[in-house]
Simulated scan of single mutants.
Amino acid sequence: MPYRLYVPENYNPNTSYPLVLFLHGGGERGNDNEKQLMANDGAVIWAAPENQAKHPSFILAPQSRNVPDGGFTITRDVNNIVNLSRVFEVSEDLKMAYEVLQHVRGEYNIDPNRLYSTGVSQGGFGTFNMNMEHPDTFAAMVPIAGGADPAKAHLIKHVPIWAFHAKDDSVIPVSYSRNIIDAIKSNGGEPIYTEYKSKMNYDHASWIPAYENEKMIEWVFQQVKSSN
């Protein structure tokens, strides 16, 4: 699996650093190892000088396969047409992304209590699913324009979550985020949820304002998983 890794400037192997895992959307599938960086700010915003100055951190951005069942969840049928019937499945690419994460953790001094995950669209579903598969790995998650199986909400009720979606999303209906957020709350969780109004005209691209939200970025780095 191709991936890009940002290593903090003046990396000191004797110091442990946080890591942000970014999972891209369906349009960035492939093997060029570029589209996951160029399509939006989901990966690069964390490496911006102003953010690195305050929060030196690694950023990991793997790239999934460009095949019908490729992606960090499965949103297409055999004809490569959008079909949301399998979005709650854990895809093979998501499993591989987790293996890439473990490889990087083995290569560098990364703080196990400051691992963060975020993703958009397919990667938004993937962010939920990876946390459900590995509920004790991440200190916080920021899924955007995604969703998850409400029946599994209890698995991540303890994870700090800030989710985003646009009300007028024409690709992934906003109900996917609403349903999982409501289910997490029903299980005792306290997720943060931001929904952009239709008049703001973000449609599927709710990641644009989400990643411009400086409060969200600061919130992410404030989260530290208990080592207990």
Score class of each variant (00 low, 15 high):
Ser226Lys: 13
Tyr202His: 11
Asn79Cys: 10
Trp46Gln: 04
Ile74Met: 05
Val90Cys: 09
Ser227Cys: 11
His55Leu: 06
Gly124Asp: 05
Ile161Met: 13
Gly147Phe: 01
Glu190Phe: 07
Asn228Gly: 08
Tyr6Asp: 02
Lys185Pro: 02
Leu155Glu: 14
Met200Cys: 04
Val142Phe: 05
Asp77Tyr: 09
Asn10Gln: 14
Pro2Gly: 09
Tyr202Ile: 00
Met96Tyr: 06
Gly147Gln: 06
Ile74His: 05
Gly189Cys: 10
Gly188Asn: 09
Pro112Leu: 11
Met38Ala: 13
Gly119Val: 04
Asn129Phe: 00
His55Arg: 15
Thr194Lys: 15
Lys197Asp: 06
Arg86Cys: 03
Lys225Phe: 05
Gln52Lys: 10
Val20Trp: 03
Asn213Leu: 09
Asn129Cys: 05
Phe164Val: 05
Asp136Ala: 10
Arg86Phe: 03
Ala145Thr: 10
Pro13Glu: 13
Ile81Arg: 12
Ala205Asp: 10
Ser186Ala: 15
Glu34Phe: 10
His165Pro: 01
Ala205Lys: 10
Ala43Pro: 04
Ile192Glu: 08
Asn14Phe: 10
Glu214Ile: 12
Ala183Trp: 03
Gly26Lys: 00
Ala43Phe: 00
Tyr116Ala: 14
Ser198Gln: 08
Met200Pro: 04
Leu115Thr: 09
Leu101Gly: 02
Phe22Gly: 03
Asp169Gln: 09
Ser227His: 15
Leu21Ser: 03
Lys199Thr: 12
Glu133Met: 08
His134Glu: 12
Gly30Met: 07
Lys95Thr: 10
Gly188Val: 12
Ser91Asp: 08
Tyr98Pro: 01
Ile180Pro: 00
Leu23Met: 07
Phe128Pro: 02
Phe128Asn: 02
His24Lys: 07
Ala145Phe: 02
Glu99Gln: 15
Ala145Ile: 09
Pro143His: 00
Arg4Val: 12
Asn131Glu: 13
Gly71Asn: 04
Val224Gly: 10
Arg65Gln: 15
Glu214Gly: 14
Asp41Val: 05
Pro191Arg: 06
His204Glu: 04
Tyr6Ala: 12
Gln63Ala: 01
Phe125Met: 02
Trp219Thr: 02
Gly106Ser: 11
Gly124Val: 01
Arg86Met: 02
Phe221Ala: 11
Ser16Pro: 00
Ala139Lys: 04
Gly126Gln: 00
Met216Cys: 11
Pro173Phe: 07
Leu23Cys: 11
Asn179Glu: 09
Ser226Ala: 13
Tyr6Val: 03
Glu89Ala: 04
Val220Ser: 01
Met1Gly: 12
Asn10Ile: 06
Lys185Ile: 13
Gln52Ala: 10
Leu60Tyr: 04
Asn10Lys: 12
Tyr11Ile: 13
Trp46Glu: 03
Asp32Tyr: 11
Val7Cys: 05
Val171His: 02
Thr137Val: 13
Trp219His: 07
His158Glu: 11
Asp32Val: 06
Pro68Ser: 07
Ile74Lys: 05
Met132Leu: 15
Ile74Asp: 00
Val44Asn: 12
Ile161Tyr: 01
Leu60Ile: 11
Ser227Pro: 03
